[in-house]
Design a protein around this nucleic acid. Structure first.
Lengths: 192, 192
DNA sequence: TGATGTCTGTCACTCAGTGCCACTATGGTT
DNA sequence: AACCATAGTGGCACTGAGTGACAGACATCA
């Protein structure tokens, strides 16, 4: 991974072959593909584990307030990026330039969003209003997360991003809570 | 494209080589790659043109109410999918099964979202509050759009999706409008 | 000493995608 | 009629990602 990042920043992503990486790392080509399913995956090593952690967290928060749980899940994702600033920054620089990597990043963000909306849907009545609310809520939290993260990355990771994250998450929570509450009530309303 | 879709549905995406497609279509391999930058692009032919149309629409709506304009832009995207139901349905079935294609779809949705949020940011003061509002708003509209589209596709494209789209867009518009209004005022507030 | 399992390297192969060159058909020019 | 420009196409060779099969190295345990 270290060899790959160094080569990517010098030669660019497309300008670096897997052979280059393995030669620099002193392993064989075959070994590389045993540890990374594809060349792109060298850059996104821990997305799966974070996704699992988020799933686990949400699975354990069946009794907490749904909107709060989702906000905390977003915070969890955020922390996983902030925990390794150099790596996150290097990845950010690469994903800005290389379209394939940006698409990959976007895809993994979409997976986070999916996990959040699935959780919300599981906590809400099975109406189309609730489904809409769940998707909008998940998308809003992810958007807030992304916005704060991007701003932080653009600043070079210098400042403490947590105050901004708090503001963003509470803003979205305040926005979303009534929508979720309304869609939860919807079912009891139809029963009445 | 027709040959490709037929082969994809029979043999699967990964099970179909470009050679298969070109043989079925009666053209050479080289010709294929002149029309489609990659194998994936056979399935997403008109995303770029739709994106351009949305950009154009938003570029022309500098005087309309921003939230309304974004909602209409989302409707524009929606219409582009509904206009060709068979193709959209076939694509939907493929993207559900093949991860590469799903990621590709997600990436193009992200581009739509980007266009919407860029527009909103251009219509709002240059504060971080406004930037957050813009991203959340764009994400919410896209989420609403996606939700209605998915529901429609799951139903097999049988019902008329427009009533559901109207509901979803107005729901999001009602939700988002105060947020946008607040972030617009923010700048004049700081002047006071 | 032998059996087992894990990690690694080598080799050969498929397939996506690109660059280069040659061929053909068409339409317009003199 | 001969001449040219140009757009579309095919052929060919090449790079590079990714995979499957096999064999050797090494540590562990019996």
């Amino acid at each position: 991974m270290r060899a790959a990042f160094e080569l990517f920043t010098v030669q660019g992503y497309e300008g670096t072959t897997v052979d280059d990486i393995t030669a620099a790392a002193g392993v064989s080509r075959r070994t590389f593909f045993r540890y990374f399913p594809s060349k792109e995956d060298v850059i996104f090593p821990d997305h799966d584990s974070v996704l699992d952690r988020v799933r686990w967290y949400l699975g354990a928060s069946a009794n907490t307030e749904p909107v709060f749980a989702v906000a905390e899940a977003a915070r969890l994702i955020f922390e996983s990026f902030v925990a390794t600033p150099e790596q996150t920054l290097a990845r950010y620089r690469l994903t800005r330039e290389v379209a394939v990597l940006r698409d990959r990043e976007v895809a993994s963000v979409a997976r986070y969003e999916r996990v959040l909306s699935d959780y919300l849907r599981s906590r809400l009545p099975k109406t189309s209003e609730a489904a809409l609310a769940a998707h909008v809520a998940a998308a809003s939290f992810v958007a807030a997360h992304n916005q704060v993260l991007r701003e932080w990355l653009r600043s070079g990771g210098a400042t403490d991003p947590h105050p901004a994250l708090d503001v963003a998450l509470t803003t979205v929570a305040d926005l979303i809570t009534p929508l979720i509450a309304r869609s939860s009530r919807q079912s009891s309303q139809s029963t009445v």
